[in-house]
């Protein structure tokens, strides 16, 4: 057992040692020059830097870097900085490492061994038949869960079959339950704000099907109050990061809200970031991709 643990530890150390740190320019203000491999270029947000690069920060300038997708730090004093000096900033903060590790060991060592002979019910998941019920509707897995309070956002789907009309259903249960709302539409989407007067805060489940057919796949729509949504946005906005411009804050909020399934709000913030800083290709491209991915017209 000790040997196993030692081997795991050495393996993790080996992996860690094999990775070299990378830095990404998260935000900047003023004059920042990158020197890398003998070349000198003006820094831009989104620039990826190796640890061999160095930065020259002008007067009244600031740059914020992300190291290895983990830690964020800023440099705000005039001068030349070699990034190798900042590799300590890349060290991961494992938090409750010991607790996580013990939980891992516990999980690894507490699984019961069974076999088809001792518990056949656990092993009856192989279905020896072909299915002739392939669903004609595809709903993007990113729409599995949407948390919504207000604003425009479409519940969209795609159809494999050539169909003129589609049925849209809203249920109060994940598998069975009552149909709260249904509609027949020629569009392959329904905007949530058109239903909002029907929905109070809570969980709802929606589905779409080619007219006359059924689709058992249901997606989650959670309605929250605007107060609840605003409190979340305030919390995200007040997270103490390094320096951020208004566009950078909007872009970060868009990203964090998308991660948190607040898609209608994420859309607004991506749009805001792209409007505030139209020359930043990342903001513009992200906004356009978001619109395309979620069929926003």
């Amino acid at each position: 057992m000790k040997l196993n643990l030692l081997l795991i530890f050495l393996f993790i150390q080996l992996l860690a040692a094999g990775q070299s740190n990378q830095f990404l320019i998260y935000s900047m203000k003023g004059q920042v020059i990158i020197k890398e491999n003998g070349n000198e270029t003006k820094a831009k947000v989104g620039h990826l830097l190796s640890p061999n690069a160095s930065l020259e920060i002008g007067a009244n300038s600031i740059v914020t870097l992300i190291c290895d997708q983990i830690n964020l730090f800023s440099i705000d004093k005039k001068g030349k900085y070699n990034l190798t000096a900042y590799t300590d900033s890349c060290k991961k903060n494992y938090g409750s490492f010991t607790g996580n590790y013990l939980r891992y060991v516990w999980a690894q060592m507490s699984q019961k061994q069974t076999s088809p002979g001792t518990n056949r019910k656990l092993y009856m998941n192989t279905i020896g038949a072909v299915s002739r019920s392939v669903n004609n509707i595809w709903i993007d897995p990113r729409l599995d869960t949407i948390i919504y309070s207000d604003g425009y956002f479409p519940l969209a789907w795609k159809s494999y079959a050539e169909a003129d009309r589609f049925d849209f259903y809203m249920y109060d249960n994940n598998t069975k339950g009552n149909v709260l709302f249904s509609d027949s539409t020629s569009e392959m989407q329904v905007a949530i704000n058109t239903l909002q007067h029907l929905l109070k805060p809570g969980y709802y489940f929606w589905s779409a099907a080619v007219k006359g057919q059924q689709n058992e796949e249901r997606k989650v729509l959670k309605i929250v109050t605007t107060k609840e949504r605003d409190q979340l946005i305030d919390r995200l906005r007040n997270i103490t990061l390094a320096y951020e411009s208004e566009a950078e804050t909007a872009f970060r909020l868009g990203f964090q809200l998308e991660e948190a399934h607040y898609l209608a709000d994420a859309y607004n913030y991506y749009q805001k970031a792209a409007t505030l800083q139209p020359d930043q290709p990342v903001y513009r491209q992200t906004f356009m991709s978001f619109k395309k991915d979620y069929d926003i017209k």
Binding site: S131, N136, G212
Partner: peptide, 11 residues
């Protein structure tokens, strides 16, 4: 008939 029909299709 070794085929599963899980949901309705064309009526």
């Amino acid at each position: 008939l070794d085929v599963m029909f899980d949901n309705d299709k064309d009526s």
